[in-house]
Simulated scan of single mutants.
Amino acid sequence: MRRAAPLLLIMVLLGSSVAGAVDSAVVRSSPGEFALLAGYGITHRGFGATRTQVQTADAILRYGHFLSDEHGAGWYRGRHELFVELPLHLTVDPRVRTMTGGYLLGSWKFTSSDAVAPYLFAGGGVLYNDLGLATQGTRLNFSYQGGVGLQWFLRTGTALGIEYRYHHVSNAGTADPNEPLNSSKILFGISFYR
């Protein structure tokens, strides 16, 4: 987490330096976006039944499709967006292994600002888990997650972003044992609106 702080500071400074210089009206009219996110995740031992520390390096390919025109007024004006994600979670602790699958997430993207686009999201999906942990009874697992993000526009149609997500992985009681992996992820990304 200490390593992510300088990157976060750079993103905030970069975002504030272009604030007002770029019109993000593309979020109000675009049919969708493509994004690539990368970051770090770590489980929270003692949160729920999580006992094992797992650290991940994450890469996520995202397609976002807007489902609505703008709704609301004032600061909460925004649009509904559906994210389809293909994640690759490379575990680096306790051993190098992978988790991959697919996520479907619903999002509310705020459109009241001309320089930034904050958003909320939640959803879930399926993960194939090859961690080799004795505390997980199957390789087929399920995930639910939710979080917040913020995009800064570098130019019309291109944005840098930062996102936090709570991420849960378990086999949903389909096998024993079933230790869940409850973690936090910090992701940085770039989005291209079309």
Rank of each mutant, 00 (worst) to 15 (best):
A5R: 15
L7D: 02
L8V: 15
L9E: 09
I10V: 14
V12P: 05
V12S: 11
L13R: 04
L14H: 09
G15S: 13
S16Q: 15
S17W: 15
V18S: 08
A21P: 01
V22N: 04
D23A: 06
S24I: 02
S24F: 04
S24K: 01
A25C: 07
V26R: 11
R28C: 03
S29K: 13
S30E: 10
P31Q: 09
F34L: 15
L37M: 04
I42A: 15
I42E: 15
I42L: 12
I42Y: 13
I42W: 11
G46R: 12
G46Q: 11
G46W: 09
T50K: 09
R51P: 02
Q53D: 03
Q53R: 15
Q53S: 10
V54D: 01
V54I: 12
Q55L: 07
Q55T: 09
A57E: 06
D58L: 04
D69K: 11
D69I: 05
D69S: 14
H71Y: 15
G74L: 05
W75Q: 01
W75Y: 04
Y76V: 07
R77G: 06
R77N: 08
R77E: 14
R79L: 09
R79T: 05
H80T: 11
V84E: 00
E85N: 07
E85V: 00
L86Q: 03
L88C: 04
L88N: 06
L88T: 10
D93W: 08
V96L: 10
V96S: 11
T98K: 00
M99C: 01
G102S: 06
Y103Q: 03
L105K: 12
K109C: 03
K109P: 00
T111D: 05
S112V: 08
S113N: 13
S113C: 07
A115N: 09
V116G: 00
V116A: 07
A117Y: 06
P118G: 03
P118S: 04
P118L: 04
Y119C: 02
Y119Q: 05
L120I: 12
L120M: 11
A122F: 14
A122Y: 11
V126I: 09
V126Q: 00
N129H: 13
D130V: 02
L131P: 00
G132R: 07
L133C: 10
A134V: 08
T135M: 10
T138N: 10
R139S: 12
R139I: 02
R139W: 05
Y144R: 02
Q145F: 00
Q145E: 07
V148E: 01
L150P: 10
Q151G: 10
L154P: 00
L154G: 13
R155Q: 14
T156W: 05
G157W: 05
G157E: 06
G157N: 02
T158G: 08
T158L: 15
I162F: 12
E163I: 01
Y164T: 01
H167T: 04
N171H: 11
A175M: 11
N178L: 08
L181W: 05
N182W: 13
S184V: 14
K185T: 10
L187V: 13
I190M: 11
I190E: 00
I190C: 07
I190W: 04
